[in-house]
Lab assay of single mutants.
Amino acid sequence: EPSQADLDALLSAVRDNRLSIEQAVTLLTPSSGGGSGGGSMDAKEILTRFKDGGLDRAAAQALLAGRTPA
């Protein structure tokens, strides 16, 4: 399960175009075949909204942490 520091680094990389959204989703869902963790939004949607400015960093982190299976 990614830590808050991992999520923060991942969000920074996506925002700075050092990591594509697809690459980030793969890192967030290493063994689930890329499927959502059952959250209301999947990781790709969360990351896309964050990059487009629709979500701030704290909200994106909380959503990603919340949808990651324990």
Rank of each mutant, 00 (worst) to 15 (best):
E22H: 06
G54V: 11
L55K: 01
R15S: 11
T48H: 05
S31L: 12
N17L: 06
L55G: 01
A58L: 13
V25R: 02
A59D: 09
A62C: 09
A43F: 14
N17A: 05
D8E: 10
E1I: 13
V14L: 07
A62T: 10
K44S: 08
S40L: 13
T26H: 15
A5V: 15
S32T: 11
T29W: 13
P69R: 01
R15Q: 11
L27E: 04
P30T: 12
G53C: 05
D42R: 08
A9W: 14
A65G: 13
D6Y: 15
T29E: 13
A70M: 07
I46L: 03
R18C: 07
K44Q: 10
S40Y: 13
G66L: 11
G66C: 09
S3M: 15
G66Y: 09
L55T: 02
A43H: 09
A43S: 09
E45H: 05
D6S: 14
K44W: 14
T29G: 12
L27F: 13
R18V: 13
A58W: 11
L11P: 00
A13V: 02
Q23E: 13
T29Q: 11
L19H: 01
S20W: 03
D16T: 06
E22G: 05
A65K: 08
L10Q: 00
L47K: 00
D8I: 05
E45R: 03
R67M: 13
T29F: 14
S31Y: 13
K51F: 07
G38H: 12
A24C: 06
L63Y: 07
L7A: 02
F50H: 02
S40V: 10
Q23R: 05
N17D: 08
D52G: 07
S20Y: 02
Q61H: 13
G53H: 04
A70H: 08
A62Q: 12
R57N: 06
A58Q: 13
G53N: 04
E22C: 05
A5E: 10
R57C: 06
A58I: 09
A65T: 12
N17Y: 03
G37S: 08
P2V: 15
A9N: 11
Q4K: 15
A60W: 02
A9M: 14
P30H: 07
T68K: 12
A24K: 00
A24G: 03
R57S: 10
A59I: 08
D6F: 15
A43W: 07
A59V: 06
Q4A: 13
S12L: 09
T48Q: 12
L64H: 01
L47Y: 01
F50N: 00
A65E: 12
A9K: 09
G38Y: 09
M41Q: 09
K51I: 07
P69F: 06
A9G: 06
K51T: 03
K51R: 10
D52K: 06
P69W: 03
E22K: 05
V25C: 06
D6A: 09
Q61W: 06
G66W: 07
I21W: 01
S40H: 11
K44V: 09
K44M: 05
D56N: 08
P69H: 09
S3E: 10
I46N: 00
A62W: 03
R67I: 12
G54I: 15
A13M: 12
M41W: 12
V14Y: 02
I21H: 00
L19G: 00
D16S: 07
G39E: 08
L7M: 07
A24E: 00
G34I: 15
I46Q: 00
L10E: 00
A70N: 09
P69E: 12
D16W: 04
G37E: 08
S36I: 15
E45C: 08
L10A: 03
T68A: 15
L11K: 00
S12I: 10
Q61D: 03
E45N: 05
S32D: 13
I46P: 00
G37Y: 14
A43G: 05
Q4N: 12
S12K: 06
E45K: 05
G33D: 11
T48E: 11
R49S: 08
L10F: 04
Q4S: 11
G53E: 03
A65V: 11
S20L: 03
Q4I: 15
L63Q: 03
S3Y: 12
K51G: 03
A9S: 08
S3F: 14
D6M: 14
R15H: 07
E45A: 07
V14G: 00
N17I: 02
L63D: 02
R57W: 14
G53L: 03
A9D: 12
V14M: 02
Q23D: 12
M41I: 11
R15V: 09
L27N: 04
G53I: 01
A13Y: 04
F50G: 00
L28Q: 00
G38V: 15
A59T: 14
S36P: 11
V14R: 00
Q4Y: 14
S32M: 12
E45W: 05
V14K: 00
G39K: 03
S40Q: 12
S20R: 03
I21Q: 00
Q4T: 15
S40G: 14
R15T: 06
T26P: 03
A9H: 08
L63V: 03
N17P: 00
K44G: 05
R15A: 13
A9E: 12
R49Q: 15
S12Q: 10
T26G: 08
I46H: 01
D56T: 10
R15F: 10
S36C: 12
A60K: 00
L7N: 03
T48A: 08
P69K: 02
A65D: 06
A5H: 08
D56P: 06
T29D: 15
L55R: 01
D56E: 10
R57A: 12
A60E: 00
D6C: 13
K44R: 10
G38R: 05
P30I: 11
I46M: 02
A13G: 05
A9F: 08
T48R: 07
P30Q: 10
D16L: 05
D16I: 02
L63K: 03
A58V: 13
L11V: 02
A43K: 05
A58R: 07
E1M: 13
Q23H: 10
G35P: 14
S3A: 08
Q61I: 15
S31W: 11
T68M: 12
L10G: 01
R18A: 08
V14C: 02
L55H: 02
L64N: 01
R15W: 14
M41V: 08
A24R: 00
Q4F: 15
P2H: 14
A9R: 09
T68Y: 14
V25T: 05
S3P: 10
V14D: 00
S40E: 13
I46V: 10
R67V: 10
L47M: 03
T68R: 11
A62N: 06
E45Y: 05
V25W: 04
L11W: 04
A13S: 05
I46S: 01
A43D: 04
R49G: 03
S20C: 03
P2M: 15
A58K: 09
R67E: 08
G39F: 11
Q23C: 09
T26I: 13
D16H: 10
E1W: 15
L7C: 04
L19Q: 02
K44F: 14
E1T: 13
D52W: 06
T48I: 10
L55V: 04
T29C: 14
L27I: 12
K51L: 09
E22T: 06
L7V: 09
L7K: 02
V14S: 00
R67P: 06
G54E: 14
R49T: 04
P30Y: 13
T68I: 11
D52Y: 08
L64S: 01
S32L: 10
V25I: 05
F50L: 02
G38M: 15
S31A: 11
G38Q: 10
G66A: 11
Q4H: 15
G34D: 12
P69A: 06
R15Y: 14
R18H: 11
L28P: 00
D56K: 05
S31N: 13
V25P: 01
S20H: 03
L19D: 01
S31H: 09
L27M: 15
S12A: 06
P2R: 03
D8H: 08
L11D: 01
G37H: 11
E22Q: 09
P2D: 12
L19M: 08
R18F: 05
D42E: 10
R67H: 09
L10W: 05
S20V: 02
P30W: 10
T26V: 11
S31R: 03
S3W: 15
L64C: 01
Q23G: 06
A58F: 10
R49D: 04
V14P: 00
R67W: 15
L64K: 01
G66H: 12
D42W: 11
A59R: 06
V14A: 01
G53Q: 04
L27V: 03
A43C: 11
S36L: 15
I46Y: 02
R18M: 07
D6T: 06
L64G: 00
T68V: 14
P69S: 08
Q23I: 07
V25L: 13
E22D: 12
I21F: 02
A24N: 00
G54D: 14
L55E: 01
E45M: 06
L55F: 04
L64E: 01
L63A: 08
G35T: 13
G35M: 09
S36G: 11
L28C: 05
E1Q: 12
P69T: 09
L55N: 01
G66M: 06
A43M: 12
A43E: 07
D8C: 07
S40M: 12
D6H: 13
R49P: 01
G54A: 15
M41G: 08
Q61S: 10
Q23L: 10
S36T: 08
A43Q: 07
A13E: 04
R15C: 07
V25G: 02
T26E: 14
G53R: 03
S31V: 07
A43T: 12
R15M: 14
Q61G: 05
F50Y: 14
L27A: 05
I21M: 03
D52H: 08
G39A: 14
L64Y: 01
L27T: 04
F50K: 00
L64I: 06
M41H: 06
K44P: 03
S3H: 14
V25Y: 05
D42V: 05
K51M: 05
G38K: 08
P69D: 08
S32C: 12
